[in-house]
Amino acid sequence: MTLETEFERVSMPLENPFTISRGTQTDAENVIVRVTDEGGMTGVGGAAPSPHYGETAETVEAVLPDLLTAVEEIGDPHALHAIEAELSTVVTDNPAARCAVSIAVHDLAAKRLGVPLHRLWGLDPSAAPATSFTVGLDETERVREKAADAVEAGYSILKLKLGTDRDRELVEAVREAAPDARLRVDANEAWTAREAVRKSEWLAELDVEFVEQPVPAEDPEGLRFAYERSALPIAADESCVTLSDIPAIADRCDIANLKLMKTGGLLEARRMIAAARAHGLEVMCGCMIESNASIAAAAQLAPLLDYADLDGSLLLADDPYDGIPMLDGEIQLGAQAQAGTGARPKSVE
């Protein structure tokens, strides 16, 4: 079998500037990968590199030729385990680049079999949890407006970014704007352990569901301190990057938050979910700010999750790809009409 591969870099403006405790983003640089079989069927994947994890669009473009050469040499899109193993041998780091290739090959394999990817995995589409919609840091009144707009748009689960000296003010503003919404908060490593414990008390009073990554990943004992004393469940994100991190965080959090762009591939993501379950952890899948070229693949994992935070494409002003419908935040895998991940180029009028 002959496979042809290609990639292109895309720059996508955000609907609104997106701010977390580490900085502000106004556009997203993704790299789109395509793998085509001899019959002309094409699988699509996307890389959304994060400088926080040492990747940029430039580093993705630099390693993709070697990764795609490995795919062409194996030549069989159904050899998913062999391909993902070879990708990690060819390039040991750069997980977003490897993940884009993994997604494209999975998309092609499922398309060749004529089934959605979740069907290939034997998953129940009705078991998918709804996704949250993220409200980034901003002036208090603007955060209030964003929360109200999200609820008006149909999103019943909000995730609020924190990590300022106005954290309580921001949460109270969101609660006023969205009194009935399920609310989660994410500090993105901005607090100390003791600060996290103190803030968890009033966060619980404001009916927050859980706190994501309150302390720096470089402070595992601080994470344990917060977990043991927090009034709310703790989710680990930056502390949960690869499969080997799962045992390390098992006694330091309640929820493991994986992201495809951290895992390096869909098979590795499924291994992380299984490992988290084996250690008694709940599981969430988050995302970077990404095109549906990769979000659609993450959505295929949704029936395996307790929580979903897959709004990356929803934050874009324009995405060149359509994906899984997420009306009112519901991940509608059952409505997927296409084989593969469900990602497809938007038609040009």
Rank of each mutant, 00 (worst) to 15 (best):
F7S: 10
R166K: 11
D219H: 07
E228K: 01
V348A: 13
I74G: 04
A173C: 09
V283E: 03
T2H: 12
A308W: 06
T263Y: 13
V197N: 14
A235R: 04
Y227E: 14
D186F: 14
P345T: 00
L232A: 12
I331L: 12
E169H: 09
P214N: 08
E268Y: 04
Q25F: 13
I273L: 10
A130R: 12
T131N: 03
L80N: 11
L258I: 12
E205F: 08
G163Y: 15
E282Q: 10
G340T: 10
R198C: 08
L162E: 02
R194A: 15
A97F: 01
E4R: 12
T89S: 03
H78T: 15
R270H: 13
V185Y: 07
W191G: 07
T164M: 09
L160Y: 06
I249E: 10
A256T: 04
D167V: 05
D165R: 14
A296I: 06
I273N: 09
A181R: 01
A278Q: 04
E84K: 02
T140D: 04
R252I: 14
L223F: 11
F225M: 12
E212S: 05
L87T: 06
P116S: 06
Q338G: 09
G265V: 05
D66P: 00
E282F: 00
E15H: 10
A187I: 07
V151K: 01
N30E: 03
L243Q: 04
P116V: 04
S244W: 11
P247C: 11
R194F: 11
L206S: 03
L304N: 11
Q213T: 02
G54S: 06
P220M: 09
M284H: 01
L3K: 03
I289P: 01
N30F: 08
A128R: 07
L258G: 01
D219C: 06
A308V: 14
A275K: 02
A204W: 07
R9C: 13
A335L: 15
P125F: 02
Y227D: 13
V211T: 11
L315A: 00
T56F: 12
